[in-house]
Amino acid sequence: MVLLTLMAAVVIGIVRVRNLFSVVVLGGIYSFLMATVMLVLDAVDVAMTEAAVGAGVSTVLMLSVLYLTKTEEHVPQHTPIVPLFVAIVTGAVLVYGTIDKPAFGIADTPMHNHVGARYLEQSIPETGVPNVVTSVLASYRGFDTLGETTVIFTAGIGVLLLMKRRSRKVDRSSDEEQG
């Protein structure tokens, strides 16, 4: 609970601060807080991934992009009334939607009685893997993971196409970035 409040405070900082360097560092802090919250929520695998990816790799990538571009944000010309209105209305509707949701940490909500319970029961007899997250990820939902891997592959190829140093085909580089 304290962590969640702290996270909200960091996000307010991210929204307010104009120096992009501070924004990126605050983003790293935010990711670490998020990883800790995930640990509290018993999602150890996810917490590990978030700590490595969100706080580590993506912060490094953001910083390298800041090195390539600029580190100051301009003051916006028009006042952000409309976005603020949209955001507040969306938030109000969503909060209204949460009133009927089951309270935090209850064991007999619908989501715990469907396929999740089956995975927990059958993982050892069917796959022999105690870590249910691994068995679901790699075995029960193998197609899903294959798709995700393909997405990563595609994103990697896209970044390489966009960022590869143009060595000999200078005139064709504009064609490449279209594709």
């Binding site: 695998d45 490595a52 990820l137």
Partner: peptide, 17 residues
């Protein structure tokens, strides 16, 4: 990763890190 938290995604990111 079969017995504790972990798996290919985490390990790949740690190795890249």
């Amino acid at each position: 990763g079969d017995y504790g938290p972990g798996g290919g995604f985490q390990a790949g990111v740690v190795a890249a890190a």
